[in-house]
Simulated assay, not measured.
Amino acid sequence: MDSIRVFAPATVANVACGFDIFGFAVTSPGDIITLTRRDEPGVVITDIIGDGGRLPREADRNTAGIAIQTYLRHIKRTDVGVEAVLQKQMPLGSGLGSSAASAVAGVYAINELLGRPLTTRQLIPFAMEGERIACGSAHADNVGPSLLGGFVVIRSYSPLDVIRINTPATLFCTLVHPDIEVNTKDARFILKNEVSLKNTITQMGNVAGLIAGLMSPDYDLISRSLVDVIIEPVRSILIPEFNEVKQAAVDNGALGCSISGSGPSMFALSRDAETAERVGAAMQQAFLSVGITSEAYVSEINREGPKVILK
């Protein structure tokens, strides 16, 4: 195989109460990478489409490039040379796991191109290095679900322990991205280093409740547990009309609504596709009431993860 094209999905990280430990994949949007073998060793990014010229073309400064480089060093194949063309299909700084999708697409593609010397799960640490380049923190709540598909729990980072759990077949996600930008580094900087014991206990209850609700499945329990008393109150100030958008989602039948990743995108979970569509329209209208346009995506939980696209 001399060339390969791979799609990697966007993700919702944190999922309200699960800061840095919960995440799930969606069916769209996502990023696409094309890798082509070259005679000279090393990784060369020849083009990035859809970023407006904002992302670095140097491989060691690009999330996909650094993920591929780290992978090749690990398997001791620094003799391999590839050219990469990255197609960004989601906004930067969106809270949709844009940097993670690029890293996942890159490392999944190179592993496929070389005949799968590693399992998909073994690729997680290399994709995490892309996240380190992007925001200074090698977290796995975006790359984990983007690589493995489905809903994942990051039980531990040292050692890394990523668990995929079952979710209801009819659970639908609505994603709304307002046309504003929140920098991930800034969104992490404003967080408090300490939280109260009261809030910690409340959050732990919601974390346990959400997992139990998803695995049961118990939609009422899912709804009661989609509550974040630690991160959302701080980060929501970065999103105009946040409370109104969240209320619009709930009023139209959503089980719950919160910030996707570091924002400004917001997500809602619903029992069925029809409700999820209605929720999306209501959320968009709430943003539009203050002059903010937005994009909406509705999908089931993506259980597949990355996939090879046949030309």
Rank of each mutant, 00 (worst) to 15 (best):
L214E: 02
G18I: 06
P29L: 07
V44H: 09
S270N: 11
G115Y: 11
G97L: 02
V153L: 14
F7G: 00
T119H: 07
V15C: 08
R5G: 04
Q284L: 08
R121M: 13
P56A: 14
L147F: 09
R57P: 10
V152P: 02
V82I: 14
S260F: 06
P145K: 05
K246E: 13
T70I: 10
A208I: 10
C17Y: 01
F7L: 04
V298H: 03
I21E: 05
G136N: 06
D228P: 04
N62V: 13
D141Q: 06
V85A: 04
D251V: 07
E277W: 11
P117Q: 04
I237W: 06
I230G: 08
I66H: 06
S299Y: 05
P178G: 06
T120R: 12
L147Q: 00
G65F: 11
N166W: 12
Y108R: 00
P306M: 09
E131D: 04
V290N: 05
C135L: 08
A59E: 13
H74W: 10
T70M: 08
D161G: 11
T27K: 13
L123Y: 02
A64N: 06
I154F: 06
R188N: 10
A273D: 10
A100F: 01
I45L: 14
A248W: 04
A276S: 14
S260A: 13
T174R: 01
A109V: 02
R38S: 15
H74A: 15
V43N: 04
S146G: 12
T275P: 10
G213E: 03
E194G: 04
V80Y: 02
G50M: 08
G150T: 09
L171F: 14
R188W: 11
Q69L: 15
E194Q: 15
A140E: 04
I211N: 02
D31Y: 05
Q203D: 11
I110L: 07
I4A: 01
D2G: 11
P233Q: 07
F151N: 02
S265N: 00
K307D: 07
G115I: 12
T46N: 15
I211T: 07
R132V: 12
G261W: 05
D272K: 08
G256L: 01
A169G: 14
G42C: 15
V227A: 10
G263E: 05
L221N: 00
G261C: 06
F126L: 03
Y108N: 04
G213C: 10
A67M: 12
D220Q: 14
I222K: 00
